[in-house]
Design a protein around this nucleic acid. Structure first.
Length: 276
DNA sequence: CTCCGAGTTAAGCAGTTAAA
DNA sequence: TTTAACTGCTTAACTCGGAG
């Protein structure tokens, strides 16, 4: 049974990295595309099944856990296996930094194949991507965030840089926590969600984070939100209520309370002090 | 009307620790 | 590195009152 979902990003264009399109497809037997060229970078990640990928220089037999990369302006052809057709996610993107990101993953016209078999995190990111409502600007911002996460996951999983047996050090987990907070501080996130994202137990991650930063995850999150709020108080005319919601506090009263606890003055006084 | 401060209460969450 | 149990803290939701 062939199934396809295609999404086209349209509202936002970021000069550094813009998502062009993305989707999921369970291909028919022998379903093919090309030979043709694309005008943007395209990465396919195979969930199941098999198929072939042909470039101007070589033909590759690919299967579950592998992926292929298409560079703009180069002719490629790909075809699902007749007995075991592949099922894949894809994401297309372009922008000033696109080439640099692709280099970070060690992908090129001459080396267009990657393998990702460590866990199902990449699959989860793609699932999140296609489940996001993209008809509004926040939705498009979220999918761009996920594009960065997908690319970073591919950079981290690059077998030429890191073997599967190699233990991830403390700093990598800490960086994942801070990355997640920086991208999601505006939402009502919990330490449990962060631990789920990192893939470690909450209590273990908490002690690991504290031993490395001398601060708890919750404390780090609050400090990050307060610093963002300070920036908004200084650089915008937004009301206290709007600022509180912008940094993840649905209740402005609660926000004022916490702000005062950390800064010693209420948000309004803080703004007045800055402008006088 | 908006914003802020103070207080209360129940529920949920985070941090810690010990054991495995 | 995970799990479970415990404790204490935080948060949400609410009220009331005051200032501008």
């Amino acid at each position: 049974m062939s199934q396809i979902m295609v999404y086209v990003a349209k509202n936002i264009k970021y000069s550094d990295l813009t998502l062009h399109n993305y989707g999921y497809e369970q291909c028919w037997p022998s379903h093919y595309y090309g030979p043709a060229i694309r005008e943007y970078y395209l990465i396919h990640y195979i969930l199941s099944g098999k198929g072939i990928f042909k470039t101007e220089e070589a033909t590759y037999k690919l299967k579950k856990g592998q992926g292929f990369f298409i560079c703009p302006g180069h002719v490629t052809y790909y075809e699902a296996d007749v007995d075991d057709p592949w099922e894949y996610y894809w994401v297309g993107f372009y922008g000033h930094q696109a080439e640099a990101f692709v280099k970070e993953i060690n992908l090129s016209v001459k080396a267009p194949i990657f393998t990702y078999e460590n866990d199902n995190r990449l699959q989860q990111l793609f699932q999140q991507l296609i489940s996001i409502e993209t008809t509004d600007t926040p939705g498009e911002m979220r999918i761009h965030g996920l594009l960065y996460l997908i690319l970073s996951e591919l950079v981290c999983s690059d077998g030429r840089k890191q073997t599967p047996e190699k233990r991830v050090n403390k700093e990598v987990y800490v960086n994942k926590v801070t990355d997640f907070i920086e991208m999601n501080y505006a939402h009502q996130i919990t330490v449990t969600q962060i631990a789920d994202y990192v893939g470690l137990d909450r209590s273990y991650l908490g002690s690991l984070f504290k031993s490395s930063t001398n601060t708890s995850i919750q404390e780090y999150l609050i400090n990050y939100r307060i610093s963002k709020a300070c920036s908004l108080l200084y650089n915008s005319d937004l009301s206290i209520g709007n600022i509180s919601r912008s940094v993840g506090y649905e209740d402005p009263l609660l926000f004022s309370k916490i702000f005062k606890k950390y800064k010693g003055v209420s948000p309004k006084k803080f703004r007045n002090q800055l402008t006088t």
